[in-house]
Simulated assay, not measured.
Amino acid sequence: MSTVFLVHGGLWEPMNADRFWRAPGIVAALEARDVSVLAPDRAQSPASWTEEVAVLRKRLPQEPVVLVGASNGCSVAALLAIEHPESVERLVLAWPATSGDPVVDERTRAGFTSRGASAAIAEELLAADTLRGVRDEDLALLSIPVAVLPSVPENPSHQRKTVEALLRLIPGSRELTGCPEPPTPDFPPHKDELAGTLAAFIG
């Protein structure tokens, strides 16, 4: 079975792989299904999505992986798949962060600036088509198996319309059974189902 490379959520906030993937039990649940897991930390205060991709590119193993991006980590995962197709055999976009919503973007921008990001960095990170930092035309060229896992129930930061847009854009993509995103309080009962869903997609 292929190695799963987990890309945690968050953007310019105190989030890391331990809090997002390990503490909620997702890594352990996958490993219990004999899935090999890598879950590195993303850049904490990136100036661009290019910087984010460069940090994680160094952590990819030599053999192709199944990439699982979460929330804003979907942007990094998608860009890795687009720019380094030799390293990615499958892609899961889980709880994709909604872009282009004025209320959500303004709240996100305020969060960036309160943590020290310049206005230029905030605009760079918020620039978006369907996913922040990723061109729709590049998503439409993906030829690997892609699955989209929605936030259920949806919320302002993870809206259903983003899932539907990705399913339309990416050829052959399919929807997986959704659940609340970790590490929210509603997630724990869904841990084993999520691990089973991801293991089944990996094959």
Rank of each mutant, 00 (worst) to 15 (best):
A120H: 13
L80E: 01
D41H: 09
R107F: 08
S173A: 15
S118D: 08
A117S: 14
R107P: 00
A128M: 11
A32G: 15
E175H: 05
W21G: 07
A147V: 03
P145R: 08
A127I: 08
F201T: 04
T3W: 00
G111K: 07
V148E: 03
K58D: 15
P40W: 03
T98I: 07
N155I: 13
T177W: 10
E89L: 11
F5S: 02
T130W: 07
V65W: 05
A77P: 07
L93R: 04
V146R: 12
P153Y: 05
Q62D: 12
A200D: 13
V53A: 03
L11P: 04
W12D: 04
A147F: 06
V4T: 14
V55G: 03
S114V: 11
A195Y: 00
R174Q: 11
P153L: 04
P156E: 10
F112M: 11
A81M: 03
E13Y: 04
E51D: 14
V134E: 05
S118Y: 10
W49P: 00
E31F: 06
F20G: 00
L198I: 15
E123L: 09
D192G: 08
N155W: 07
G111F: 07
P156Q: 10
S143V: 14
K161I: 15
T130D: 07
A29R: 00
P153M: 05
S118R: 09
L38Y: 02
L56F: 02
L6F: 06
G172F: 13
V134T: 06
F5K: 02
R33Y: 05
Q62G: 13
A78F: 05
E181L: 07
S99H: 09
L166V: 08
R160H: 14
D192C: 07
T162P: 12
S157R: 08
W49S: 01
A94C: 07
